[in-house]
Simulated assay, not measured.
Amino acid sequence: MTGGITPEAVERIGVSLAAQLDARPARAFDEEPVKRVGAILDFSRAVTRDEVLEGLEQTDSAFAARVRRAIFTFADIPARLDGRDVPKVLRSVDQPVLVTALAGAAAAGLGEPAAFLLSSLPSRLSGTLREEMEALGNPDPREVESAMAEVVAAIRRMEAARQITLATPPAPDTS
């Protein structure tokens, strides 16, 4: 059916398509909305993150589900960070910050991520960190949340630099 098309017609189609591509406005953001909202919520306080997600859930549950998958928090570390990458990541976090995050993790209900991080380190380093955690006691919850955010930021920086790869979170169960 296209055998009778003239070269002039093909050229006009090509020029038309090129004009449409050039007519697209420049984008203000490189990332799609889900990734941008997820990145903001990665570093938001837990209370704020939960409130925003609840609001999103009420207005657009499909978008909220996609944002939940895009978020990476301290709690997500065991499921998404490869244990072999833990030493590399933790070297990029100041030790007092790391000790604060780990010491306060159990009180914040995040003992599993802390245990995962410690078990992924050489035993000597893990032992030293445990001693420092014990000496620190129970740090202020705001300091703990800030320290956890720094650990997450270090992981995200390394992921962005392609030094590590995070596992993709499982899709939400829609059944």
Rank of each mutant, 00 (worst) to 15 (best):
L53G: 04
E54M: 09
G55R: 13
L56N: 02
L56C: 00
L56P: 01
E57H: 11
E57D: 12
E57Q: 10
Q58H: 14
Q58C: 03
T59K: 06
T59Q: 13
D60T: 09
D60Y: 06
D60G: 11
S61R: 11
S61Y: 10
A62T: 13
A62C: 02
F63V: 00
A64V: 01
A64M: 08
A65N: 06
A65V: 03
V67E: 04
R68Q: 06
R68W: 07
R68D: 05
R68I: 03
R69I: 00
R69E: 15
A70H: 01
I71P: 01
F72W: 03
T73Q: 09
F74D: 06
F74N: 01
F74T: 03
A75K: 05
A75G: 10
A75V: 10
P78N: 06
P78A: 04
A79R: 15
A79N: 11
A79H: 15
R80L: 12
R80T: 01
R80I: 03
R80Q: 15
R80N: 05
D82I: 07
D82Q: 06
D82M: 04
D82L: 05
G83H: 15
G83C: 13
R84Q: 15
D85G: 05
D85C: 09
V86A: 06
V86M: 08
P87I: 09
K88S: 09
K88Q: 14
K88H: 12
K88A: 14
V89H: 13
L90R: 00
L90I: 15
L90G: 01
L90D: 01
R91W: 11
S92K: 15
V93D: 02
V93Q: 01
V93R: 07
D94G: 05
Q95R: 14
Q95F: 08
Q95D: 10
P96F: 02
V97N: 01
L98W: 02
V99Q: 07
V99G: 04
T100K: 06
A101Y: 01
A101V: 00
L102V: 05
L102M: 08
A103P: 00
A103W: 05
A103I: 03
G104Y: 04
A105S: 08
A106S: 13
A106P: 09
A106W: 06
A106D: 15
A107V: 06
A107Y: 13
A107E: 11
A108E: 15
A108S: 13
